[in-house]
Amino acid sequence: MGQTITSETTALAARVTTLAEAAFATADGLRRRAEDLFTGGRPASADLAVLRPWVTEALGGLINGAGVITVPLADGRPGLEWWMGSPAQRSRLTLDLDPASDTFVDVGRQPWYSVPRDTGRRHVTGPYVDYVCAEQYALTFTVPVTDHGTFAGIAGADVFVGDFERALRPALRAVGTPVALVNTHGRVVAGSTAHHLAGSLIRDAHIRTALLTALPAVLPGGVRLTPCGTLPLAVLTWP
């Protein structure tokens, strides 16, 4: 008890925050462009095509997918302008929105859509298997798009967990002791030991409870929890 968080741990949490906030900034930029479309009344789904230059420009670096998905628009069809890949090799996402189809995607069921819709707040989904878009293990950063205060869709950015881990690697190594970046559910995003590989779940009840409170804490066994800003992510270190 009373141990201080090392500066390396703080630096790791800060690095995570910087990367995540950059992804959110991308999503938020697209949100503003999308909301502009609603100022003169409800657009049609085809009108979202004007977002294309900004969406494709968002790709690159850690961002491997970005775009806007809306509620059904003036023509009764949802708006979808989402691109995947790198600036050099990119492809437009098409979703099967026919409920009678075998490959139907119920967007409303996906947490990256439903959480911003239901809470009105930004959300980090994952790490999760994104079988809707890139079929990759990913983190998805989404913000709600509103039309005069009413939910009208989401804008977001995808980061592959593998890329995120690579970007964090120097900061992870610098910590020295066993360390893992986890989400509030205890799912490991990146870790420094074979016990804490991406996707594994922290089952320790003390840790799981502490993660939900999202406050700095020292837990039984000397496990230390450092939140990453206001994100639903935290750094855990073991002695």
């Binding site: 999760y128 079988y131 079929e135 990759q136």
Partner: peptide, 15 residues
């Protein structure tokens, strides 16, 4: 189930 397994590869195989 493959998504809950946290495996993108197994999910792709399922598809």
């Amino acid at each position: 189930v493959a998504a809950v397994a946290q495996s993108a590869r197994l999910a792709r195989e399922e598809i």
